[in-house]
Computed example of a mutant assay.
Amino acid sequence: MNSQNPVIQVDGLSRSYRDVAALWDVTFSLQPNMICGLLGRNGAGKTTLMRMLTGQDFPSAGSVRLFGENPVENSTVLQQICFVSEAQRYPDGFQARHVLAGAPWFFADWDAAFADDLVGKFRLPLKRDVKKLSRGQQSALGVIVGLASRASITIFDEPYLGLDAVARHTFYDTLLADYAERPRTILLSTHLIDEVSNLLEHVLVLDEGRLLLDQSAESLRGSAAAVAGRAGDVDSFVEGRQILHRDTLGGLATVTIAGRLTAADHRAATAANLEIAPVSFQQLIVDLSTRSAPAPAVASVVHE
């Protein structure tokens, strides 16, 4: 575990909009130099959290600290952050080359040579208006800005969804290679959980505004298994274990259970004619999300 002070510290964070609680009592901290996945379904509160991390929104309760300071209107903090969003907008008439030329004004560690290399990798047309770029080209522009910023905290809010599969894997490979040479804190918000699972060192999962999971990715891998077979045999095997999900079809059942199975467990499953299968990272997150309880009512959110 990194013994340094957290680069991101969130305590009791809540945010409500009229009668909707977007976030509820969220608390976590991230140490410097890690790749963290921010996961959850649409409407889980991910974008709200990222907007507050980058000083674009205000808490209804609780606090956000980056490098120990409030990011709101704090130029010292904000110049160390790069927030790349799929919804990023630029002035009319702005071309891709204008975005890259202006980047050094916002990012002290901007690497123009790296940006030029990425322009070639992603085949980005520099002299085309941003609003006339295809969705994939706009995504490529966001990825280039995020990577070449070399910001101490780089947050990607799904800007790479417009990329095709080849371009996305180019992004993942480039991100890992550059991170290995220049470690920093990277927060990836994505629905493509299995695609990024091997990149992640830590996982935050939001569901209905609550923090459902705050755990190292390594501890999550292999932390659940699917047991399939005759329903009665499956029920006997999983008795007393934490059940994450259950499917039945006729007299057959498949049950996802939490926890790592021992060699003795595998022998017992074989003896009972049961099949044991690993659970993908994405399926584990889905199972955890679908079994979570509803968020509290907005009326109980305390406003400052």
Score class of each variant (00 low, 15 high):
E201T: 05
D116L: 03
L163Q: 14
A148L: 09
G37K: 06
E181H: 03
D214F: 11
G250V: 05
L38C: 01
Q242S: 10
H266G: 08
R51S: 14
L261Q: 06
I257L: 10
T185P: 09
L23N: 06
R135E: 13
H202E: 11
M1N: 14
T27S: 15
C36L: 11
A113I: 03
T47N: 01
Q56A: 01
H245A: 12
R150I: 00
L126F: 02
L244C: 06
L38W: 00
A108W: 08
F67Q: 13
G240T: 10
I81Q: 05
S14Y: 07
K121E: 13
Q79S: 15
L213T: 02
N42V: 04
H266P: 00
D287K: 02
L118V: 07
A268E: 12
Y90K: 06
A112Q: 15
G142F: 02
H169S: 14
C82Q: 12
E275K: 14
R260Q: 07
Q56E: 09
L249P: 00
L163N: 11
G40W: 03
H98W: 02
N5F: 04
T262Q: 04
G120N: 11
R128D: 03
D214R: 14
T54M: 03
M1A: 15
N273D: 10
V84F: 14
C36W: 11
D117N: 13
Y179C: 04
R221F: 06
L199G: 04
R18H: 10
G40T: 02
F156A: 06
T254Y: 04
T185S: 15
I81L: 14
G93L: 15
